[in-house]
Write a protein that binds this DNA or RNA. Sequence first.
RNA 1: GGGUAGAUGGCCGAGUGGUUAAAGGCGACAGACUGUAAAUCUGUUCUCUCGCGAGUACGUAGGUUCGAAUCCUACUCUGCCCA
Length: 379
Amino acid sequence: MAALTFQLQHTDTQSKARAGTITTDHGEIQTPIFMPVGTVGSVKAVTQQQLHKDVQAQIILGNTYHLYLRPGLEVLEAAGGLHQLMNWNKPILTDSGGFQVFSLSGVRKLTEEGALFQSHIDGSRHLFTPEKVMDIQRIIGGDIIMAFDECPPGASEYKYAESSLGLTLRWLDRCFERFNSTKDKYGYTQNLFPIVQGGVHHDLRKRSCEYISEKNATGNAIGGLSVGEPTEKMYEICELCCDHLPVNKPRYLMGVGTPWNIVENIALGVDMFDCVMPTRNGRNAMLFTSNGVINIDNKKWEKDFSPIDDGIDCEVSNFYNKAYLRHLMKSKEILGLQIASIHNLAFYMDIVKKARQHIIEGDFNSWKNEMVVKWQQRL
RNA sequence: GGGUAGAUGGCCGAGUGGUUAAAGGCGACAGACUGUAAAUCUGUUCUCUCGCGAGUACGUAGGUUCGAAUCCUACUCUGCCCA
């Protein structure tokens, strides 16, 4: 059992895109990669079998905050970790709950010590400290676990972003200290990824990257983007971060994004992505396809019996037609949510798979520029 | 045949003299969603007009009144009860 490694195989000449292979104790991950989000130990509406066969997921996410509240550490530990509980034998990455510090802002309080949350389930109070978050993630058993950070809103002023970053970096030291003084819980190696913060401010981001690089982690993450700032700002900051993070370690851009966001950020040097968009928007009738964006609820699809998407290698997307999926969604049939989620995830996986091919073949940039226009079209 | 309750916008259903183009729900039609408090949320939904506004509307036909979905009369239809 060994720490995560990253083998860089190709670097694009026209852009900063890279193709590589991450090796974990639960198998390999071909990068660039998209990681479906399975917050509570479930990629919503998609079975593990479907994740393997139809989506062809290589790694999925879980969330510390949610799993800690339910099913709770006792169950997770008794199961032998999340892999065992959900029968998922490929890699898992767990987010730290840092994003919940941001998104549950109505029910939490921040201090130097940590973040005091009020459970959205029963209102009970829980203190998350960097140490506790490391301990919880050890028990959940993610192959990759994330540092506990604060994710300030995209519009944050310099002063707030600076003090927030200070807190995040102090928390980072405590995360590593705890992580390094505890052991892998289930026999395979767990890896801690630190997270760059600093809002939209260049010097803060640069300082953050430098600080984080010194940790010499097996991979690094960029957080605090696509949280309200303009898209161009996101690209600008992302590029700056990529330029200041180690070349030979995977770079993970957290929470991004649309299909076009993903290929644009691949072009800037990002290797890993996660986002709720394919599943959440899928459940809400928005389909991302090879030809553009579809709101499958729209009347125009009522009698369109063509496949949801025959431009990707996914049996579900090829098999079901638009009129049927519209009917299912309008009827609030559970099958509709499943099909939409599987299709969107398969499309996302297809994007990163093709991106990788084009990076290796050397025509990534022109392919990307063509696809970005095509995918954004509203059908 | 007798009695009784009722008839409201695509549907269900509030409203019993003016603040009612008419609550609410459903349906329909759009929109939003980026490390998931989201199978959620928002908007529109009589006609004409970009809008201001105007015109038609609460079974049908009359009537009372300054004013009626709301009161009166007749009719039509529907539910229920009794024969």
